[in-house]
Design a protein around this nucleic acid. Structure first.
Lengths: 106, 106
DNA sequence: TTGACGTGAAACCATTTGGTTGTATAATAA
DNA sequence: TTATTATACAACCAAATGGTTTCACGTCAA
């Protein structure tokens, strides 16, 4: 859980807690404490998850007074989107195959 | 690396080796040995990765003679696709915001 | 100025992860 | 029949991961 290595977006997004954090940050800026309230794990654990998300570029933060506010940056998710695009026709093929079968039945 | 627990598709896809395996299996069925040739890690390691992919439903296998052939099943990737759809307008917003800025400049 | 609040940082810890080597066994080619 | 090939399985290992507790420190409200 060390923060020095740049986290891969795929890896960052692999954890359910981190996905939930991204969801909470969709639209609004929230502080660590506020975010933590929705989880059963400690504030420290949430801080670590946020650092991982930040090192993957999925969130950005700024210190305001005594709090640190985090906000979503969805751009790195485009990488996942592009990666997925390649596989899209593989699951669509299944559908078109099914379509053919159904058409043959009629 | 135990295989009993069902692997999450997000987790399955988080590893670069496993993503490469999926790519190799796009379109064609390949045996473990054949797949292994393209990696620097051992065949055993590849077998374990394939088991993880299988438990996530991303590949299916069948034993043919003395080999085990694996093939891609992209369906579980739809889960990732749906998940991503929610964030799509967050990176699109950036573009439309940029567009607004550019328009104002003109 | 004094607590309470929000965070940062360090030290630890158990489990999971990704990898290895070695042995056993069924299928195939000579 | 005898190697050789392709796996399977078990045991083991170091490092990464997700988590904790404790303590220190700046900020803000009374």
């Amino acid at each position: 859980m060390e923060q020095s290595p740049r986290y891969d977006v795929f890896q960052a997004v692999a954890d359910p807690t981190r996905r939930k954090l991204l969801e909470m940050l969709a639209g609004k800026q929230l502080s660590i404490s506020t975010l933590s309230k929705d989880f059963s794990v400690s504030r420290t654990a949430i801080t670590k998850h946020l650092r991982i998300l930040e090192s993957a570029g999925l969130v950005q933060s700024q210190k305001v007074g005594r709090e640190r506010l985090y906000r979503l940056d969805a751009k790195p998710l485009q990488t996942v989107h592009h990666w997925l695009a390649f596989y899209e026709h593989f699951w669509e093929d299944k559908l078109s195959n099914l379509k053919k079968v159904v058409e043959k039945e009629l």
